[in-house]
């Protein structure tokens, strides 16, 4: 730790040649170059033909879809009724299952609405003292836009329903 950390790196991003350099063996260098090129190739293939499923080599598709300004905005929510008859909207932290995850699995949940029972189970685990849920609906609200701004009008569709037995 003692010593000459005062070497100026100059304008380059590398330090000038005075400090000693530890070289790689030819073998070590070759392996590293091959590994790096293989990783780059996987990432390129993932970007060209891959999907999110190929994480971490899938395409970087954040905000990659071209939106139409006035296409309606989807707003997916979980509406529930508990044993006391109370109506509530389940939040991400109440269930541990996030809204984006609900949207990602919505086709599967439409085919198998009983999966909503698992969300009820998660809710009960996280709120052990709350009344049991007896019903959950997945409701998609379509907010109408004009010039990209909400007009206040909306329509709602119930995409899946689960009832406690």
């Amino acid at each position: 730790m003692q010593g000459q950390i005062t070497t100026r790196a100059g304008t380059d991003d590398e330090v000038p040649d005075e400090p000693p350099v530890r070289r790689l063996s030819p073998h070590g260098r070759a392996i590293r170059v091959v590994v790096a090129l293989a990783g780059a190739a996987l990432l390129l293939v993932g970007t060209l033909v891959g999907q999110d499923d190929d994480f971490p080599f899938g395409p970087f598709r954040m905000y990659a879809t071209a939106d139409k300004l006035n296409a309606p905005v989807h707003d997916t929510r979980l509406r529930a009724v508990d044993a006391s008859g109370r109506h509530l909207q389940l939040t991400d932290t109440q269930t541990g299952f996030r809204r984006a995850e609900l949207e990602g699995q919505l086709p599967r949940i439409q085919r198998h609405p009983e999966l909503l029972g698992a969300i009820a189970t998660a809710y009960h685990r996280r709120q052990p003292d709350a009344p049991r849920l007896v019903r959950i609906d997945v409701v998609v609200r379509l907010l109408a836009l004009r010039d990209g701004r909400p007009t206040g009008a909306y329509t709602e569709r119930t995409e899946a329903t689960w009832r406690a037995r």
Partner: peptide
């Protein structure tokens, strides 16, 4: 590659679309 993904999923319309506006 995120630009590349924009062209793959959004197409060239991504440039003139409303992604940022929304």
């Amino acid at each position: 590659l995120s630009s590349w993904a924009k062209f793959r999923f959004g197409g060239l319309e991504w440039l003139t679309g409303a992604t940022m506006a929304r």
